[in-house]
Structure formats: structure tokens, C-alpha cells
Design a protein around this nucleic acid. Structure first.
Lengths: 214, 214, 214, 214
DNA sequence: GATGAATGAGCTTTCATTCAT
DNA sequence: AATGAATGAAAGCTCATTCAT
């Protein structure tokens, strides 16, 4: 047989780098899930982005669901890691909140959709009951983080009377998820920065007792 | 053939009311699109809810896309109609904002997902580029409503220096979309009411000049 | 547009006959499941045999499993119907058995694999646990038929001492399933007929007390 | 490099024993093919049972088909070896038959599915035409064994008039395959033993001339 | 001798859409 | 105005097989 004739291109093609594919896979999955959601992220889309076939995905994850869970876990880790870092040096609640917004803004600039991924997970969980269980256990771990901050603010008398930890938590939730959707949709970096600053001002207002006046 | 003899049950099965089916169709489509999103809302789901077959949908809409557009238009109309009503009697921005939040809360109680539908449309638009064009033209009409309110607040000197109409608009966007996601995900009516009240307090604070002090 | 140009061939193609496709579908499914088993019978194979696409199958059955159940139910009905007919006019066990063999032989000639389908179902059930439940309830109905015949033979003293109804049933099971496999594999009609006659002789022997001697 | 330092665990991981893997592979393949059939027996299932990867299978067999052929050949050898042993000391056909049934029962107790494997091969062959050729040549060798026994019985006048060797062979086929299916499906050891005894009685009856009366 | 990464074909299933009736 | 049969494309997933290492 003529050795110059191209052979069948089956089997593993001169591996680019062991472990490299896995990284690329998680990376692209993360990106796609974050950007267009669970349904719209088809295996083919992910595979094409990585440069493999859809079957190869199952070498790394037993199902699309698991791939999603893995991607979410990583992103959640990133986001909440950044948030924990952000509040680490801060004493009072307003400063913690400010730092968190800055941290979120920073992430949103690098990977515009990651914050939205974390925030949007509860909607995805409603649409896909199969995900609920796994997502809940993942989330419970980090929900406590915000909970703690809010309870502390209440204990320290940093909020007006009648404001409970629960309410403070819910309001932060509203602001953060609103911000993440905004960042996901709006490209203009200036507007994003301005909004972050605006929200800091907002939070520094009536809702909280002035720290100096305490 | 004797017209008194019952005919075969072919063709249109004695439609309950002409135009009735159309209404039911839009109603159920609205509900489903709002609740579970574009992808998860299959034609069959809508048809079953109405009590017709999937084929019959195409008597009313040339495609699923158009049905979505129509549903969105109606919901948008409802929501923004309510908002316009809400601000009608109010002079100052803070009061307008308060009234709007109340209006949104009222809608969220009746049809929990409609506000989220309007807000979430931009995400759906990213997932489904085919929708983008039609949605944009729909939205442009109502975007002006908030724009006008914000510009007026700036003109009237109701906001602190450095706050532009654009920024005010963006921040309202953030708060409203955050609230709508919250309402979609949280069932507890008390928590929802509390959050609305909290947001009113928030907005009445530092960000804006105190009306009395003006 | 030139009306001579062929249009897209979507939608329902001038229906051959309403209800006709359903019949063909069940027919071919029956044949294929009986001949090559559950796994080897792909939706494509069935669809091609009928002349439709694989998707159309789901118009008639919600899943491949249900299609199998339906096919099995029909075949079981046929086979056991024939068996019940066969034993109807017979008084003594040996004659019942003879008639049953003749009935099975007749079916095997018309549809060579139907008897094997009924017999092979327990193996298929082991391979596919999802089928077990539905199959069991179907089978329980007809298992009683053989059970009754065997118990009656014991009650009437037609079998040697020590032979229980259970054992008689099991042996008939062995012979019938053996015969069905044989008929499935051997094409030669003469050999099949001879084997049936041979089995009659076999059963007329020592195992049972001689009817005359009773 | 210091040979005492543990090496990387690449390449062949200190194979327990050369040739050992091959044995284990055939063993597990045999078991799985016999138990759940050709289709349901995936390479992965076999590989996992052995403790290797699917790729490694191809060091021992060029394809799944060949693995099946090999497994079948071994089992056939075992079963027919046992049968040959069983008939070795017997003079008359009825005794040979009895001994064979006992041998089959013994195998069925140890490896419940092996007899069924041998018997079921013709069905598998119909499902998978690719197997037909190879299986036929394998089977032809051992088919002669039963053929010889039956012809001898006819020559020795052990059967009633009109019973040919072919027919006797076919009937044994029916009984043996029926028994094997029964053993595969029924777990109860008592029932299995009883059926074997029942079949011996059956065969000792009318069909054959009574040896004493000869 | 064995792994592990990858392929390509095929499977069951879903779905928007079409169209004769 | 509506049904019901059918399509074709695509989805998630499995599997035998290949091959660089």
C-alpha cells in the first residue's frame, strides 16, 4: 500500500497535551453555561468550542448534568472566594458591601457572565428539577457566607430598627442579582463602573445608621 | 343527508367561541413563557394547556418565535401600563419610584412571573439570536418611559450632583430586575413585601437630595 | 415561482389510509421483536419496514418499551388464544397436549417467530429490567391457563404418582419452549411436523398413566 | 535512576501474571455473553470485570465478534466435553440420555448460563448475521456428536419404527434447549432437579421400545 | 501489555413545523 | 378552525474501535 496515502483518522490524534483537553472542556463549558444557560448549551456547542466530538465529553463527565454541576461549582468557588477575600479586611457592613461590589465588578470585567451564572442558578434549578438536589447542596455551603455578614451587621447595630438579618440578606440578593444581570447585558465599561459606584452610595444612605452617629 | 343527524366529529369541533381560542392561546403562552422560559415552553405544552393540537397554533402564529413576541408584547404592555398608571399622580421621583415598586409588587402577586418575563427577555434574546431583532424594536418603545422619568428627576435637581439620567436609569434597572428575579424565586409573600419596603427606604436615602432640604 | 418545481416534502404526505400506518407499525414491530429481539430491533428498522421515519413511531407509542409491550400483548393473545381454542374440545390431558402442539405448529408455520416471542420474553425481561414489571402483569394472566390444565390432570389421576402439577407445568414449559426455539431456527416444514408428532408420542408414554389402564 | 525508587505507574502496571489476564478475560466474557447476551455485553462491562480498559481487549481479540466466538468455542467445548464424558460408559440410548441430562444439570448448577449459551447461539446468530458464518463452522464439529448417538440408537433398534436418527436428534435438541432455557429462568434448584428427573421418565416411555422387551 | 484520549456511527427521543383532510 | 399524521433536524448518550504514548 502506498504509504503516502492518508490513513484513516480514527483513534486518538497525536494528543495536544494530556490534561489540556480537560481544562479546555471545563473552561468552555463554564463559559457557555454562564452565557447562554443550560438548555441552549448543547454538547455539540461545547465540543466544537473545545475541538473534540460530543462523545469525548463523556470521557470527562458522565452526563451533561454533571458537567453543569462541575462548571457551577468552579464558578461559585471563584465568585465566593473573591467575595470572601473582599470582605476580609473590612470592619463595618457598608465597607464590606462596597468591597463586595468592587470584587463582583472585577470578575464581571474579566468573565462577564460568571456572576450571572451563580445568580441565575436558582432559575435554572426551577426549570430543571434534576439539577435541584445537586445544586442545593452546593449552594448551601456558600449561602451561609452572606447570612453571616448580615446577621453580624444586625448584631452590631449597623442597621435601622426593624431591619432583620433576613431582610438585609434579601436586599443584598436583589442588588447583586440585579447588578449581575445588568453586567451580563450591558457592555459599556463606564456604565458598569458608574452603576457600582451608585449602588455604593445607595447603600450608604438611610437604610443603615450612620456609623459615626453610633 | 339529513342535517338533523349528528355529523362526524371532524374539522373544527364546535369552537366554544370564535376568538376565544386565540385569547386562551395567548394567555397560556404568556404564562408558560414567563414561568419556564422559551426553550422549556414547547408547542405541545401550550397546546395542551389550551386544549388544542400543536398544528392549530399555526392558525394564530406563523411560528413559535412570533408567539413569543406576541406574548412578550402583551406582558410588556401590562407591566409598563401599570407602571405608567403608578407614576401618574406623583410629582417627585422618590414617590414615583415607590409607586412603581408597589405596582410591580401587585403584578408579582397576581402573576408571579410576568415581571420576570419582561426583565428576563434580554437574557432570552442572548440565548436565541433569532429573537433579538423583534424584541429590540418592542423594547425601544417602552424604554423611553423610564428614560423620561430619570431625565426629569435630573432636570428637577432631585438627584445628587454627578448623577446623570443614564446612571439613574441603570440603577433602577438593576433594582427592578433584581427584585423581579427575587420574586420569581422566593415564594414567601412577607419576605417579598419587606424587600419592597426596604428598597423604598434605600432609595429615599443619600443618593437623592432630601426633598425637604431642597 | 414555477409551479412545476417540486415543493418541499414536509408535513403529512397524502395519507395512504388513516389507521393503515398504525396497523403496519404494530405488524412490523411484532415481526421484528419476535425475530431478532428487543435490542436488535431498532426504531429505524421498524420505521423503515413501515415506510415512515423514526420520529413518527412516537405518534403511536410513547417509547420503544411501550411498543414492545404492545407487540408482546398482541402475540401473547394470539398464541394463548389458539392454545385455549385447542384444548377446548379435549377431555384428557394427553389429548389437550396434542392439540396444543398442533396449534403451536400451525402458528409457527404462519408466523415462525411468534411462539418464540412469547417464550423468549422471560429472557428479555432479565436483560431489560425496565420491561419486567409490565411483562409480569401481562404474563400472570395467561400463566394460569397452563396451571389449570396441569392441576386438573393431577386431580383426575392422569399422571403417575409423585408428579405434581408444578412439575407437569414445568415440563410442558420445557417442551414448548424447546419446540418454539426449534421452530424458530429450523425452516424445514417436514422436520417440524415430525418433531411435533414425536413429542406427542413422547408425552403419551411412561410419564402419564395409560388412560385405558386407569 | 535509582532502581529502588518507585517508578511512575505508566505502561503495563506489573501484570499479575503473564497469560493470567487472557484467562480472566475469556472467563468474564464467557460469563457475560452467557448471562446477558451479545448486545448487552459491552466491552466496558467485560473490561471492568477483568480490571483492564476496553482498549486492552484488542490485544487479545481483534474484535468483539472474535471474543464472542472464542467464548462460545470454550463453552461449547466444556458442555460437549461433559456430554461425551457422560455417555462414555453407557450402552443403551436411554441411559446415555439420562447421563447427559445429569451432566447438563451439573453444569447448570455451577455456571447457570453456559448451557443456555450453547443453545442460544443460534438465536444470537439470527440477530447478528456477522456471527453466522463463524458460528456455523464451530457448531458443525460438535453437532456430529449427537448425530452419532442418535444414528446408533436407530441402528441398534432402540427406537420405535418410523423414528429416524434425524428425528431423534431434533427431539433431543428440543428437550435440551427447552431445559436450558428453563434453567436460565428458574432459580429454584428443586424444581430444576425435578424437571430433569421428569424428562428422564418421559424419555423412558412409549417413544422407545422397552429395553427389557427387546 | 496496557492506558487513556478520541472518533464516528448509531441509538432513543424530542420538537417545531407542514399539510391533506 | 382544527386535527392528526408525518417530517427532518437535532439533542443527549453509548459503544466498538483506534492509536499515540
Amino acid at each position: 500500500m502506498n504509504p503516502l496515502v492518508a490513513r484513516k483518522k480514527l483513534g486518538r490524534p497525536c494528543a495536544v497535551d494530556p490534561g489540556e483537553t480537560r481544562k479546555r472542556l471545563i473552561l468552555e463549558a463554564r463559559r457557555l453555561f454562564a452565557e447562554i444557560g443550560y438548555d441552549a448549551t448543547t454538547n455539540r456547542l461545547v465540543a466544537d468550542a473545545v475541538g473534540i466530538t460530543t462523545g469525548a465529553i463523556y470521557h470527562y463527565f458522565p452526563s451533561k448534568k454533571e458537567m453543569y454541576i462541575a462548571a457551577y461549582a468552579e464558578v461559585q468557588e471563584m465568585v465566593y472566594g473573591a467575595l470572601e477575600n473582599a470582605v476580609a479586611g473590612q470592619e463595618v457592613f457598608v465597607d464590606k458591601f462596597s468591597s463586595m461590589l468592587d470584587a463582583l465588578a472585577a470578575i464581571s470585567t474579566q468573565e462577564p457572565s460568571f456572576v450571572g451564572f451563580v445568580v441565575g442558578v436558582s432559575a435554572e434549578s426551577q426549570r430543571h428539577p434534576e439539577l435541584t438536589q445537586d445544586l442545593r447542596s452546593l449552594r448551601s455551603r456558600t449561602v451561609k457566607f452572606l447570612h453571616e455578614i448580615c446577621e453580624e451587621a444586625v448584631r452590631n447595630g449597623e442597621v435601622n430598627e426593624g431591619i432583620t438579618g433576613q431582610l438585609l440578606h434579601d436586599m443584598i440578593d436583589v442588588v447583586i442579582s440585579g447588578l449581575s444581570r445588568f453586567s451580563h447585558v450591558v457592555d459599556d465599561a463606564d456604565r458598569r463602573r458608574n452603576v457600582v459606584d451608585g449602588l455604593k452610595l445607595l447603600m450608604a444612605g438611610t437604610l443603615l445608621r450612620s456609623p459615626v452617629a453610633r
